[in-house]
Design a binder for these strands. Structure first.
Lengths: 153, 153
DNA sequence: GAAAAACTTAGAATCGGTCTAGCTCTCGGA
DNA sequence: TCCGAGAGCTAGACCGATTCTAAGTTTTTC
């Protein structure tokens, strides 16, 4: 019922990468598999942990390298919201924005209305070439809202 | 003609803080003065540097403490855009958004059109209480756009 | 003016992330 | 088959931003 399930198809991801001259190694496959699954917004550490469940000797350095490559290739989005570690979002084939809980940091994908209408008047563009617009909704999730004034940080 | 010059009035800032039971010390005043001036988006280090010009013995720890308190009190906004250090924006009394250069990280205040129209359908609120919406325009500043494909990072 | 509370400080500690140097693996020839 | 080049992997050192700690200083309170 909800739009697009947005699980990146693993086979097609690996294939796409291969045709771009990427050597698919067991380590890279392990990382790709993690991102491919039922996706949440994982940190590098979480990706590492899960990749190790498949291939116990993958190193954290390789996870960082692979994530960096996927980001450079535009297959994965690096999210830096709040102060924690970066999170990786493989859901790049459906335009979406994010909803963050200022209490616990929980992060959800959303598709708000009105994004298309956002416009920066020429007079305020300062000569920039605009490539992208990010919209972040901040609020408190049911749990944090319930706990009275949960202190963000 | 441009809207609000948005320099936080220093006297009123200190006064506001004092009435909230804040003890105004030389160190805190020095930090407040830095933020009060012709404002850019300064990092903690830059604030420290400038505060020292006024009061040579302020420590970086105190700068962090003071900035944190100002953020908690809602007098200053902490911006974490991209991967560098956090930047502090005293311009909180005029609603505004940000324009970032993906090449060099330059940051500008903007007031795009259409922000008021952004809306998150109830079906996507996931029970969150929405407090705020941030809009970030990403692009390349004239210099970085000119340098061909400046590699962001 | 003594004790308590609020502040400040240098430096240590922490945390996310990157870099380095050496090892391994794969691939394309001879 | 064997070899060398280059791509990839790894542990661990390193780094920058920020927070923490423990001790000293100032202010307030009684």
């Amino acid at each position: 019922m909800s739009y697009t399930r947005n699980v990146v198809d693993e086979a097609s991801l690996l294939e796409r990468l291969r045709t771009r001259g990427w050597r698919v190694t067991p380590q890279r496959r392990a990382v790709a598999e993690v991102l491919t699954g039922d996706h949440v917004h994982l940190t590098a550490d979480e990706v590492h942990e899960r990749a190790r469940a498949r291939l116990p000797e993958v190193s954290l350095a390789t996870v960082y390298n692979t994530l960096g490559e996927l980001v450079d290739m535009g297959e994965v989005l690096e999210l830096r919201i709040g102060d924690g570690p970066a999170r990786y979002d493989p859901n790049i084939h459906a335009r979406h924005q994010h909803l963050v809980c200022t209490g616990c940091g929980a992060l959800l994908d959303i598709q708000p209305a009105g994004v298309e209408q956002l416009k920066l008047p020429r007079s305020q563009q300062h000569g920039y070439v605009i490539d992208d617009i990010d919209v972040t909704f901040r609020g408190r999730c049911p749990r944090c809202a319930g706990l009275g004034e949960a202190k963000p940080r």
